[in-house]
């Protein structure tokens, strides 16, 4: 667990970070989000002491980080940055081995860890382990960067705009992969980003920063439903707030028992009395996808199926509309 208490950094007369406090629980993902210059990167870098705080303190599992030598402290915290910073003269495997080697792991354990991480990130070790960074695509480099940051099984993974330099399609795919890996490994993550969609997608809670202070620290849903200020409201986006809210919840949350639907031979379903049959919605879909399908098909109800294709319920437009509400 990471505890940040009244952390402050002044550069000359400028208070880049102004007395911020938060807690990061085991297994939690917290995003620091805000515009350029709001102090989010400085905060992150004070946690692993790449920048020494002017005031306040950071505790890791109750221990003040200033009592740990910086290099030792950083070995316990993974660090992935936007520019990736892969070592160009070392192979993918050697890059990933950096922290385990510093930790003095035995060779066999390091080799096993490299293999495990490469598999996890969809980079077959036989193909990629011996490649040099310049032989990889941007997305592959970024995967190696994150894998390298996770290699030493850090207590917390610090990420600074880790997917920032990628094209939108690659970025979305990497975010999905990373989310799955994080859920599987239970990694504790502190991520800095200026991309609200990325924060909503990857983080359990968001700390919205403005001019060195945290102006709101809440779950994505609470931020959307009750933004604390006009600044937060502008940041979460006023036009598509409803859609963002929908993307936070899955269809199963609003599903009701399916009545009157019959399965056809080709995997589609037909509502009693309708002339056309419809493709069902996957149970893993978000409410946003459900709404999109409903609008596109021009119907007010769709069947929901599990992975095996068996019908588990139905989702109706009126319940989706009721999911919002309260906003102005």
């Amino acid at each position: 667990m990471i505890t940040v208490e009244a952390l402050t950094k002044t550069f000359g007369p400028v208070r880049a970070v102004d007395g911020i406090s938060f807690e990061l629980a085991e297994g939690e993902a917290l995003a620091l989000i805000g515009p350029s210059g709001c102090g989010k990167s400085t905060t992150l870098r004070m946690i692993n002491r790449l920048i020494e705080p002017s005031a306040g303190r950071v505790l890791i599992d109750g221990v003040d980080t200033t009592s740990i030598p910086p290099a030792t402290l950083r070995l316990r915290m993974g660090y992935a940055i936007q520019g990736i910073g892969l070592f160009p003269h070392r192979t993918v495997a050697q890059n990933i081995a950096t922290v385990p080697r510093l930790l003095g792991w035995p060779r066999a354990r390091i080799a096993a860890r490299i293999e495990e991480l490469l598999e996890l990130f969809g980079l077959p070790p036989a193909v990629f382990a011996r490649k040099y960074p310049h032989e990889l695509s941007g997305g592959q480099q970024q995967r190696v960067g994150v894998a390298r940051a996770m290699a030493g099984k850090p207590a917390v993974l610090l990420m600074d705009e880790p997917f920032g330099a990628l094209d939108p399609i690659t970025r979305t795919r990497l975010q999905d992969e990373f989310l799955a890996i994080r859920r599987r490994m239970g990694t504790t993550v502190l991520i800095v980003t200026h991309d609200m969609d990325e924060a909503f997608k990857l983080a359990d809670r968001l700390a919205v920063m403005e001019k060195g202070r945290i102006v709101q620290l809440d779950t994505p849903e609470a931020l959307l439903r009750h933004p604390a200020s006009a600044f937060v409201e502008s940041l979460v986006g006023s036009e598509d707030r409803g859609l963002k809210l929908l993307s936070l919840a899955g269809v199963t949350a609003l599903m009701q028992p399916a009545t009157g639907w019959t399965a056809e031979a080709d995997g589609t379903f037909r509502k009693a009395g309708a002339d056309a049959s419809l493709a069902p919605l996957s149970a893993s879909a978000s409410l946003r996808e459900a709404a999109s399908r409903l609008v596109f098909a021009g119907v007010d109800e769709l069947p929901v199926v599990d992975e095996a294709g068996a019908m588990v319920g139905a989702i109706a437009m009126e319940r989706i509309i009721a999911f919002g509400g309260g906003g102005r």
């Binding site: 400028v14 350029s36 210059g37 102090g39 990167s41 870098r45 790449l50 920048i51 936007q82 705009e161």
Partner: peptide, 11 residues
């Protein structure tokens, strides 16, 4: 791009 102050030593 983050344009925040980095660890540059201040003269």
């Amino acid at each position: 791009m983050t344009e925040e102050p980095t660890a540059r030593p201040v003269p």
